[in-house]
């Protein structure tokens, strides 16, 4: 629609005629201003200050950035986040794709039952399920190690043995990655299933006529067309892991030591254990900015790739 230059009277007239529009969006905007806009601005300003919530706010300029550069615990939390991502996202994507491909098979029975089962972890309270994982992972008496010990006894040459899942710095990150895979594979599966169903059957049929085998059809048709879904899942999982809280807070509390503290947990501890509101706001904004720029970059890359 070509908007004519708003000469005052007609513009006012249009506003008056559409007063319902402003009425209907106003409840949303009142809350939005109070609980989203104002906090966004407030915490942006806070990130240039030093404040514990009680004493007068002290303006420190860019000092918080300088602090962050030398904050070993902060960089450690980013490193842990990265390691957890590497351990969790690729296997999760592969599992989600395989499950989606199986569920998409025409011969499958009980499709919706399987879909429900795989999706169930997405909706369960993390608090409750993390505790169950804690029981399963228990080093001395957990089900997982009991099973591994039994396997070791039965088939020693497999090399499986009980592991200190939550009690060692080496295994705390894989333990969390396994929990994350379990939790999110079903979500990825649902997205990929929708993606698979969006690929026209004729593509496969003409490929078959041209003599393409099953693998070649997957490689040359399915995977390229599914790329946007993979990219979307990977980005959301990455962001999700940066800010993941419940899983880690309940399962390991970031330990042993700091070995499984991700950025989300570090931010929470900086805010509400140490009450360093200014510094925490600076970290939150800094990481958000990096994530934002990185996502834009990836999405842009993806678009140019399409055309």
């Amino acid at each position: 629609m070509s908007a004519p230059r708003p000469d005052g009277r007609r513009y006012a007239e249009r506003i008056r005629r559409n007063w319902h529009f402003y009425l209907f969006i106003s409840p949303f905007f009142v809350l939005f201003t109070a609980f989203a806009l104002y906090p966004i601005v407030f915490s942006f300003l806070l990130s240039f200050t030093e404040w514990d919530g009680f004493v007068p706010i002290k303006w420190v300029g860019l000092d918080n950035l300088r602090l962050a550069a030398h904050d070993e615990a902060f960089w450690n939390s980013l490193w842990n986040t990265l390691v957890i991502c590497v351990l969790y996202i690729p296997p999760m994507l592969v599992a989600a794709f395989l499950l989606a491909a199986l569920l998409n098979a025409s011969w499958l029975k009980f499709r919706s039952l399987y879909r429900t089962v795989f999706f169930l972890p997405v909706i369960t309270p993390m608090v409750a399920i993390a505790l169950v994982f804690g029981l399963l992972y228990d080093t001395e008496r957990g089900l997982l190690n009991a099973t591994l010990a039994a396997i070791e006894e039965a088939v020693p040459w497999l090399g499986l043995r009980p592991l200190p899942w939550l009690t060692s710095e080496t295994w705390s990150k894989p333990s969390i990655a396994i929990l994350l895979i379990w939790r999110w594979a079903g979500y990825g599966m649902v997205l990929m299933l929708a993606g698979l169903q969006g690929i026209p059957r004729t593509y496969y049929e003409s490929a078959r006529i041209d003599g393409a085998g099953a693998w070649s059809r997957v490689w040359h048709i399915t995977l390229p067309l599914m790329r946007p879904v993979f990219v979307f899942c990977a980005i959301t999982s990455l962001i999700g892991t940066i800010y993941a809280f419940d899983e880690i807070f309940m399962l390991t509390y970031g330990g042993p030591g700091r070995s499984s503290t991700n950025f989300g947990l570090y931010l929470f501890n900086t805010s509400f254990d140490d009450f360093r509101f200014g510094y925490a706001s600076c970290l939150a904004y800094g990481v958000a900015a990096v994530v934002f720029v990185a996502s834009l970059f990836i999405l842009r890359f993806r678009r140019s790739d399409w055309n």
Binding site: I40, L46, G53, Y243, S271, F277, V287
Partner: peptide, 21 residues
Amino acid sequence: VLGTMMIPGSVLIIPIYVMMV
């Protein structure tokens, strides 16, 4: 409104806590 969706919840927590206090 869409633009503010890009800003993650993590930056809102401290201001909301302070506001609630």
